[in-house]
Amino acid sequence: MASLKDLKNRISSVKSTQKITKAMQMVAAAKLRRAQDAAQAARPYAERMEQVLAGLSKAYEGRAGAPTLLAGTGKDDVHLLVVATGERGLAGGFNSSIARLARDHAQRLLGQGKTVKILTVGRKGNDILKRSFKDNIVEYITLRDVKQIGYANAAEIGRKVLEMYGAGEFDVATLFFSSFRSVISQVPTALQLIPAKLGGGEGEPAAAAPVVDYEYEPSEEAILESLLPTNISVQVFRALLENNASFYGAQMTAMDNATRNAGEMITKLQLSYNRQRQAQITKELIEIISGAEAL
């Protein structure tokens, strides 16, 4: 049984932990709002981009000579997994759930005899994946020093992916990130970047829109060719922003839980502290009384 002094120390240490988790929760909540706004603000661009690309790429349906970013290389032997995670931990299962999705995917591909290359964005995911796929990681990008994720960061990652694609280093690229549903729900998601999957899911309304005869300047093909690489960066950018919002959402929830747990723990410790204190008082009283009676 711990002594009274030990219990007192425990209580004060748990209390200061609680203070920290509470502060972290509030900071995460404030940052979440900003991250959410940023994710929201980026949406119109990505959506328009998708609509336009879906429209343009329809022209290529079932036709040869489509740009390889759209049609792929015709093989699927080498897969590139772009895994975007957070830079920091203390966010519940945020980083590990993305990494797990990527790991399962990689293992399945390896089981099929494909080659897997991994590009990690974010320190945490890199740390986790390094354990099982040390030799598969080809590139590690950290956004640690980046305060506010800008399009330039995403463009850089996009450029790297395109460079590798141009050099024929992979056939299929998939992006892993956590998409932000709500503060309590973040869904790890895999999105195929190359060959581009357009109009998946929400593409239907775009397809239903009346087909207008556009004039293109320069040609349709040239526009498509210049937009496809941009699209990669845009998708990466969107993923980073979603990730960011998800991270703070997850952190907020995790810290909320931690604060509550600390509260419970304090109640329990306080209870046993009080009991012990009372027991000691009773014991001392008995000693005094029995001492007096003995006289």
Binding site: V212, Y214, E215, Y216, E217, P218
Partner: peptide, 12 residues
């Protein structure tokens, strides 16, 4: 230059 009621077009 684009004014109102312009024909649909797309340009980089």
């Amino acid at each position: 230059t684009v004014l109102g009621d312009h024909a649909p077009m797309m340009s980089t």
